[in-house]
């Protein structure tokens, strides 16, 4: 992994939020089941359970200052890291996945609900495990070409965020490249965006980023 990497959270929310997190608000609703024990946000503390900021990419039992169960400590020592996949398994059946965990939650049976909740938690994380190669990020795009390419975007993305489809303007170049590369490389998926991003070359993504950085 190159050392100059930009975490996906430079996106500041809504563009990333669209594909995986189309139901972020619903995810926030589901999170209400967790809130008695797990806090989120700038003032989050460890309560009955550890806080969930930056959960994605965190090693299990990885927070200092929280007393984990011996079972969770052991799982972390064994290399368990919280990703969308491992969280999905854990939330399906907590005590089946990490026997003797102290988390007193029976599990969330509905895969869609789990995905929605995990998407919400992902949106609260600073690192979803995807970073763009420094070389790709350093590519200088041609804004004129980007303007032409943007015709493929503006058929669906209105200037202001629309229902079900986020705005596409007003993002930094790095943020734009990162999210498009995340689609292109399959780190996040959405039928339309996966198709649109996979046809774009690295240079074309850079061109779009250069155009949208200053587009109104």
């Amino acid at each position: 992994m190159p050392n100059k990497a930009i975490p996906l959270t430079v996106l500041a929310g809504s563009l990333l939020a669209e594909p995986v997190l189309a139901q972020e608000s619903d995810g926030e609703g589901l999170y209400q089941q967790c809130i008695a024990c797990h806090q989120l946000g700038p003032d989050a503390d460890n309560l009955v359970g550890p806080h969930l900021n930056d959960l994605i990419g965190r090693q299990a039992a990885g927070l200092d200052g929280y007393l984990y169960s011996p079972a969770m400590d052991a799982a972390g020592a064994d290399g368990l890291v919280w990703t969308t996949e491992t969280l999905d398994a854990f939330l399906t059946d907590p005590s089946g996945t990490v026997p003797r965990t102290s988390m007193g939650y029976g599990g969330m049976a509905d895969p869609q609900e789990r995905a929605t909740l995990i998407a919400f938690l992902t949106s609260q994380s600073a690192n979803v495990g995807f970073a763009v190669d420094a070389e790709i990020l350093a590519l200088k795009g041609d804004p004129a070409y980007g303007e032409y390419l943007s015709g493929d975007c503006t058929a669906c993305h209105a200037r202001d965020a629309g229902e079900g489809i986020p705005a596409i303007t007003g993002r930094s170049r790095d943020a734009f490249v990162t999210v498009m590369q995340a689609y292109k490389q399959g780190a996040i998926t959405h039928p339309v965006m996966t198709m649109m991003a996979s046809r774009l070359s690295n240079e074309e993504i850079a061109a779009l980023a250069a155009y949208f950085e200053n587009a109104e």
Partner: peptide, 20 residues
Amino acid sequence: EVREETYDESVGWYQAITED
């Protein structure tokens, strides 16, 4: 949920393409 998201997208698309 997926079907509702798809419908919501179509509403956003309508807005975008008519502006376009």
